[in-house]
Design a protein around this nucleic acid. Structure first.
Length: 399
DNA sequence: TGTCCACTGGAAGGGAGGGCTT
DNA sequence: AAGCCCTCCCTTCCAGTGGACA
C-alpha cells in the first residue's frame, strides 16, 4: 500500500505552479503598466543623486496594479542604489495594519534601526530617530499603502514634511497609495498639497488587457493545454465587466482550476469558470454574513424569514410583488427572534443603522415608500435568495 | 387644511474597552 | 502601572417627511 502522501503527490495536477496564480504572487512582467512604471521611475530618480523626490499619490481601484508596480520600481531602485553606493532606503508600510501616525512611525523606524525596539516611546522621539537616519545623507522613500486607513493622516503628513524642512541633508519622500477615489478630497488642504505633489491614476484594465494578463499567468501556473482559450476569455470578460480588476480575474481562474481538478477533469473550460464565478460570489456573501455582528445577523434573519412567508407578498401600485417588506414589520419580527433566542434587543434607531449597513453591503435593496402606503417608510428586499441566506445564517446563529 | 401615521436620520451623549502616553 | 483619551457600539431625543384621511 503506497503512503497516503505519496499517493496524493503522485496525482496528476493541472497546476504546474500554483503559486503563480495565487493572490500573493507578484509577476515579473507588468504588462500595460509601462507608462506608470516609467513615470514613477522618473519621479524617484533624484534620490540617486541625493535629492528629495516629490511626494507621490497613486490611486485607482483594487487590482489595478498600484502596489505591484510600486513594489517593482522600488526594488529596482534599491538594487541600483546599492550598486552605485547611493544612500537610498525604501520602506513599505501597509496602513491597514499600521493605521495611526504612531504605528506607521514605529514600523518605518524598525527598518532603519532593526536592532532597537521603540514601542512605548513618544511619537516625537521616534520621529527624531528617523531624522537622525536622514541626517546621514539618507534619502528615505516611505510607501504608505492603503493610506486612507491612517486615522490621523493629516498629522502624520504634517510632521513628516516639517521634519523635511528641518534637516539639511537627506530627506523623506512619501508615496501614498489608495483605492478610495473620494479620499483625497476629504484631506486637509495643506496635507493634500503636500502629499499630492505628483499624482497618478491607475485605470482599470479592459477585457483585452485582462485577457493578456491571464494568458501569461496561465502559462506559468497551469500545465500546457489545460485551460481553454474561451475560459480565459470568459474570465477576463467577467472581471472586466465587474471591476476591471486583475485580482478578481486571476482568482476566478484559480477557482476554476480547483473545480476542474476536484472533478478530475483535465481541462478548465467555460463551465468551470461559470461555476467558479458562482462560488466566488457565494464565498463573498458567506464572508460578509459571518462577519456581521450577531444582532445584525438577526435582522437579516428576520428579513429572510419574512421573505419566505406570505407576509412577503405585497400589493404595491396594484402589482403583486414577492419579498418586499416594510421596515416596521421587520423590526417586529427581529424583536420576536431575539426574544426567542434570549438575545438583547437593539433600539429601533440602531436597527435602522443596521438596515442602512446591510444595504451598503449589497445584502438588501431598499427604496422609499411612495403613494399607496400610509406613512413614510422603507421598502426592503433581500439581495439574494432568502433560502440561501437563511441557511448560512442558521449555521452562524447556531454557534 | 389640518391632523395622524409610520417612519427617517441627525445630534448628543453614555459607557466599556483598548491603546497611547507619562 | 496608571491615567487619559479615543473609538466603537449603542440609546435617547427629536425635527422632519410624505402620504392617508377627515
Amino acid at each position: 500500500m503506497p503512503n497516503l502522501f505519496e499517493k496524493e503527490l503522485q496525482k496528476k495536477s493541472i497546476f504546474k505552479d500554483r503559486d503563480a496564480i495565487s493572490q500573493h504572487y507578484s509577476p515579473k512582467e507588468l504588462p500595460f503598466r509601462e507608462k506608470q512604471i516609467g513615470e514613477i521611475t522618473k519621479i524617484l530618480s533624484p534620490s540617486i543623486k541625493g535629492k528629495k523626490p516629490d511626494n507621490l499619490f497613486l490611486y485607482g481601484k483594487v487590482g489595478t496594479g498600484k502596489t505591484t508596480v510600486t513594489g517593482h520600481v522600488i526594488k529596482e531602485l534599491e538594487e541600483f542604489a546599492e550598486k552605485n553606493h547611493a544612500k537610498v532606503s525604501c520602506n513599505y508600510v501597509n496602513c491597514r495594519n499600521h493605521n495611526s501616525k504612531y504605528k506607521v512611525l514605529i514600523k518605518a523606524t524598525k527598518k532603519f534601526f532593526p536592532e532597537e525596539n521603540f514601542i512605548g516611546y513618544s511619537a516625537g522621539f521616534i520621529q527624531e530617530k528617523i531624522m537622525e537616519f536622514c541626517r546621514k545623507e539618507n534619502q528615505i522613500i516611505l510607501v504608505l499603502d492603503e493610506i486612507d486607513k491612517v486615522k490621523d493622516l493629516d498629522e502624520l503628513i504634517y510632521s513628516l514634511s516639517r521634519s523635511n524642512d528641518e534637516i539639511e541633508k537627506g530627506s523623506i519622500s512619501i508615496i501614498g497609495i489608495s483605492n478610495n477615489l473620494m479620499f483625497k478630497e476629504k484631506l486637509d488642504p495643506r496635507t493634500k498639497s503636500s502629499l499630492c505633489e505628483k499624482e497618478m491614476v491607475f485605470p482599470p484594465y479592459n477585457a483585452e488587457e485582462l485577457r493578456a494578463i491571464l494568458k501569461a499567468r496561465v502559462e506559468l501556473a497551469f500545465v500546457p493545454d489545460s485551460v481553454s482559450d474561451s475560459a480565459v476569455n470568459l474570465a477576463s470578460a467577467i472581471a472586466a465587466q465587474e471591476s476591471g480588476d486583475a485580482r478578481t480575474a486571476v482568482m476566478l481562474l484559480m477557482r476554476a482550476g480547483e473545480i476542474a481538478e476536484n472533478s478530475n477533469s483535465k481541462k478548465v473550460t467555460d463551465v468551470e469558470v461559470q461555476k467558479a464565478k458562482k462560488k466566488v460570489e457565494e464565498d463573498i456573501i458567506f464572508n460578509m454574513i459571518s462577519t456581521l455582528p450577531e444582532q445584525q445577523q438577526l435582522v437579516l434573519k428576520a428579513i429572510a424569514v419574512l421573505s419566505m412567508s406570505t407576509k412577503g407578498i405585497k400589493k404595491i401600485t396594484g402589482q403583486e410583488e414577492q419579498g418586499v417588506l416594510y421596515s416596521g414589520e421587520i423590526y417586529e419580527k427581529y424583536k420576536q427572534l431575539a426574544l426567542s433566542l434570549k438575545e438583547s434587543i437593539v433600539s429601533s434607531r440602531w436597527y435602522r443603522q443596521y438596515i442602512n449597513e446591510l444595504e451598503m453591503y449589497g445584502l438588501i435593496l431598499t427604496s422609499a415608500s411612495g403613494p399607496g402606503i400610509k406613512g413614510q417608510t422603507k421598502l426592503i428586499k433581500l439581495g439574494f435568495s432568502p433560502e440561501k441566506i437563511n441557511s448560512i445564517l442558521d449555521g452562524q446563529l447556531g454557534k
